[in-house]
Nucleic acid binder design. Structure first.
Lengths: 246, 246
DNA sequence: GCAAAAGTGTTGGAAATACACCCATGT
DNA sequence: ACATGGGTGTATTTCCAACACTTTTGC
């Protein structure tokens, strides 16, 4: 912040020392990170929840979170939580919003920064040995502890929007995937059905899929071809937004 | 946050008291709000800056900000700053992002929540009696103090994107405006030139403009018709996003 | 009457949608 | 052979971009 003024109009130049004192004397606030960790499995979009460790919320599910250390960057804290809970790999992580209602936490003033994370469930399945940790179908998430329901919904909406504008979805899939899997992913996240032919057309027209010349194994029907996403090409061709539309 | 664990796997139910102690004992952090206040004047998009009150940044401009009080909601703090500096009216306010690099502030650890605000400059001109406060052309903002350059750019980009998807722009205009003014606004914010006929067509097709049957006064050419924005109608017809496109 | 901006339609191309049939594989 | 999903093409519609002239007002 730039100014510590109680009224407008003060314009003395302050020394660093004065500001330091102000920072030190102001009521400080506990800061936390909460992670909304999305995964994709069995053609469903899932979110990773843990049982609240607070008696008040006994039995209710909550997001994974932790307090931020005084010497820790925000993103660092979010990565730390991911690492502790899932094993950290192929992680997409994005800060979404900060929630700071005065009474949002029963233990006192805790402002929390919500992060949205996308992980490939196959790679992390093993790490969930703790049975208080569970993948929930996003359509079946209700009554979370604290203000976590609100946080979850905000992050889910953000995901729905972002996935249509950026190639985030691939973070949820195995490196090699079929077009059917890709479409299932989009349908699960957006809650819609799409025309298969037009879906293919759209993605092939984008020209960011690399044909691996491999096919699915162990499917009880004609196997589909496998693809991977061409991140390099995407980075170069990234589209600039234009067009007023609301 | 939901869990205060140092390793995964802990699953005892904690009492409120235990968590309170943890919150109290954890290193707390000073929290601030920084406002990126946009205005529109003389066909330019402007941002309101103040001279840094820190000697280290002597002469450099910075955003308007202040520390958050322990009993104050985040949005409340942002509104307070707006009120102190501009007079608070017709304000559009939106939380954008939280910045928390460990060393972003020379006075110690200060995490800041950036807010973007759009105000109608005509209504607030008078309040800027403090000559350390100044409206800068957004194209001429460089070398701000702290990490404010980054914050400013993030907010500006957010604005550019949001204004194309939501009718924010009207917060920057007088209640009655001509189509020319509206187009100038979009061109200023997006840094583009648009075709006048297509611009009109687009806005009339949306059908959110109310023809006031009034015309501009004191213009040295054929006066344009004046319109206002129909917020109610917009709220009802709000478009749902659809379409993968990146 | 001249300068300056307001106001107005049409057309062609691109992109999105809707839609139906044959193909490859496992059982 | 049949069930299941993979793979392909075309016709229609909708949306967007490009583009030029006439009108109104102040001077």
């Amino acid at each position: 912040m730039s100014a510590i003024l109680d009224t407008a109009g003060l314009k003395n130049v302050k020394t660093l020392k004065i500001i330091q004192d102000e920072v030190a004397s102001t009521q400080r606030i506990a800061l936390s990170v909460d992670c909304v960790i999305f995964g994709f499995d069995e053609n469903k979009l899932k979110v990773l929840l843990i049982r609240s460790d607070l008696k008040k919320y006994n039995g209710r599910w909550s997001l994974l979170g932790d307090l931020i250390d005084g010497n820790e960057d925000l993103d660092e804290a979010a990565y730390r939580i991911l690492k502790q809970r899932t094993g950290l790999k192929d992680v997409y992580l994005e800060q979404v919003q900060t929630f700071g209602a005065v009474n949002r936490h029963p233990a006192g003033r805790v402002v929390t920064i919500a992060y949205c994370s996308l992980i490939n469930i196959q790679h992390h399945k093993l790490r969930i040995f703790d049975n208080e940790l569970h993948w929930h179908d996003v359509n079946n998430v209700t009554d979370l502890a604290f203000d976590h329901q609100k946080i979850f919904e905000t992050c889910y909406q953000r995901l729905q929007k972002r996935i249509q504008e950026h190639p985030l979805g691939f973070n949820l899939l195995p490196k090699k995937f079929s077009l059917r899997e890709l479409q299932n992913l989009y349908e699960a996240i957006l809650g819609t059905k799409m025309d298969r032919r037009n879906f293919r057309k759209k993605f092939f027209a984008m020209d960011f899929l690399i044909d691996l010349d491999e096919i699915e194994q162990d499917v009880p029907h004609r196997p589909g071809k496998l693809y991977k996403f061409n991140y390099d090409k995407y980075e170069k061709k990234k589209k600039k937004w234009s067009g007023i539309d609301f």
